Amino acid sequence: MTLPNWAREPLVHFLVAGIVIFTLLAWRGGDVDPASRTIEVDREQQAQIALVFERTMNRAPTDAELDAQIEAYVRDEILYREALRLGLDQGDAVVRRRMAQKMDILASSQAETVQPSEETLRVHYDANPQAFASDVRYTLDQLWFEDRKGAERALTYVETADDAFQLGQRISLPPSVDAMTSKELADRFGMQFAQNLDGLEPGENWQGPVGSGLGWHLVRLKVRDASKVPPFENVRSDVEDHWRTQTIARRKEEAFQLLRDSYKVTVKK
Rank of each mutant, 00 (worst) to 15 (best):
Y138R: 12
G215I: 09
W144K: 03
M180L: 15
Q195K: 08
Q207K: 00
D162W: 00
T139H: 09
L214A: 05
L143G: 00
N128I: 11
S134K: 04
E201R: 14
S212V: 02
A131V: 10
R137K: 15
Q169T: 07
N128H: 15
Q142K: 04
G215L: 06
E184K: 09
R153C: 09
G203F: 06
L200T: 12
L214H: 01
D135T: 13
D198H: 06
L218M: 11
L143Q: 04
L214N: 00
E152S: 01
V123S: 07
Q142N: 08
Y125D: 04
T139N: 10
A151P: 02
H124D: 03
P174Q: 10
P209D: 06
A127S: 06
Q130S: 12
S134Y: 05
Y125R: 04
L173A: 08
D135Q: 14
A164Y: 06
G199P: 08
W206T: 08
N196C: 10
F165G: 14
Q192I: 12
V136N: 00
F165D: 13
W144N: 00
Q166V: 14
R148H: 03
K183N: 09
G211F: 10
G208T: 04
L218N: 08
A154K: 07
L155M: 03
E152Q: 05
T139Q: 11
H124F: 14
D178C: 05
D126R: 13
A131R: 12
A194I: 01
N196L: 11
L200M: 12
L121Y: 01
V177F: 11
D141V: 03
R170S: 14
G213M: 03
M180W: 00
Y157S: 15
Y138T: 11
Q130E: 04
Q169C: 06
R122A: 07
S134C: 10
W216P: 03
P175N: 11
A179D: 00
P209L: 05
S172R: 04
Y157R: 15
K183Q: 06
G150V: 02
A151N: 04
Y125P: 10
E152K: 05
Y157T: 07
V158A: 13
H124W: 13
E159F: 12
E146K: 15
E201P: 07
Q166K: 15
G208L: 03
G150A: 10
S212W: 02
D198K: 08
Q142P: 03
N196A: 13
M180P: 02
L167N: 12
D163G: 09
P202M: 13
G168D: 09
T160D: 15
A186Y: 07
A164C: 05
Q192F: 00
M180N: 03
P202W: 08
S182D: 09
Y138Q: 11
V158P: 15
G213V: 10
L214T: 02
E184P: 02
G190C: 10
G168T: 14
T139R: 10
E146T: 07
Q195D: 08
Q142S: 07
L185R: 00
E204V: 05
E146V: 11
G203R: 06
A186H: 04
R188L: 09
T181R: 12
S182P: 11
S134L: 11
